[in-house]
Design a protein around this nucleic acid. Structure first.
Lengths: 212, 212
DNA sequence: ACCTGAACACCGTTCAAGT
DNA sequence: ACCTGAACACCGTTCAAGT
């Protein structure tokens, strides 16, 4: 009666919309009420699955903060991508998270702090980075490869007198999982660059405090 | 029988979890089946509400691309924040969006393109920015001010031998809507800085093509 | 300590039937 | 063209009762 293992398998094979307490109970050969002895409610079940999912995420020990930060975030992205529904748990649970989740969160915060950013900006940058992570994962919740873009493009072009949304037509990216991974990496890289420049700004202000 | 107006009011007064087709029909004094003559399904209803919500977002005409981009994103954030559930529509609908939504999306893409980024990076940067937008809005879906953090902090400190998650304890930001707005602005500012540095990199490579 | 059946209070959507 | 009632196929959760 390993509820979280069965739940994980159901999540992986069928997707979230199929993961109901009743269906889960069914695969275990019982009624749904039985589950509530093993787990407080559905939220707790998903939270436990989330924590198990993040167990595999290790934090590189060597290297500069920027590459370790990028690498850790990419590993989180890879871990969450097969189960994108779990980001909703992260958003919902706010602070009541499992130990593995908190471990990764703490490590990410520490890496951001290593950048040399002033203390009061570490939280903001951490927040921005996990928001990118959650957002890029969330975008995968309902798009299993979705090729709807080409339809939209075709529609736009047939509507005469030029495409009504020229910038979207011209620059809109494709879909696909390898694209998403690249886009996430690109986003984090640009943001980390932004952090570095911010740190340099602060250092310049500290070196020559009376020049401005 | 203005379904989208009634739906919007229900969404604003009661929240998404209360916005069901049955309850909405109830406030209109009919059965839920009646709604399906006016609207294809619940998704279309939310999509129409989303488009109406984004109508108020205007794009500043004057100024450099960076401040116009930041300002437009902040306006989107302000518009969506009272109805955070609508970001799920954006993620779900992929490309079948309303005209107002596409207008704003096209404007944002155009502003990113103005940065001077190479064409193949415009889409990636646009994606990153709307992911930040969606993510920061999504974070508000279930946290109406949530002050859970102080509890977690207290719990951590009483657990003896120092806090188990030192970085989280030290740098974790507070909650509150004014904080979220500031955090979003901070995130976009850092990312735009990252874009600028990227553009400079490309320009340097173009000016001295045989130096590397 | 663990499991059961039945019930409560909901959902979105469809569809034949009415006016 | 617009609305109705009844039904279908679901949800999460509770709770007295069993072993």
């Amino acid at each position: 009666m390993d509820v979280i293992r069965a739940g994980t398998r159901l999540l992986d094979t069928e997707g979230v919309e199929k993961l109901s307490m009743r269906k889960l109970a069914n695969t275990l050969g019982t009624g749904s009420s039985t589950l509530y002895w093993h787990v407080r409610d559905k939220d707790e079940l998903l939270l436990l699955i989330l924590d198990e999912t993040l167990r595999e995420v290790t934090v590189p020990a060597a290297g500069t903060w920027d590459v370790r930060l990028l690498e850790t975030l990419v590993r989180c992205h890879e871990a969450l991508l097969p189960r994108p529904a779990l980001v909703d748990v992260l958003w919902r649970a706010a602070w009541e998270l499992g130990p593995e989740t908190l471990r990764v969160a703490d490590a990410l915060t520490g890496l951001v702090a290593e950048s040399g950013l002033p203390d009061d900006e570490v939280g903001d940058s951490y927040m921005a980075l996990i928001t990118l992570l959650f957002g890029f994962v969330a975008g995968e919740r309902t798009s299993p490869g979705n090729p709807r873009y080409s339809e939209a493009r075709a529609e736009g072009e047939t509507a005469g007198s030029g495409p009504p949304y020229p910038n979207l037509m011209r620059y809109a990216p494709g879909a696909g999982v390898e694209t998403m991974a690249r886009q996430f990496r690109y986003a984090v890289e640009r943001f980390i660059t932004g952090i570095k420049l911010r740190v340099a700004e602060h250092e310049r202000a500290a070196d020559a405090p009376r020049s401005s």
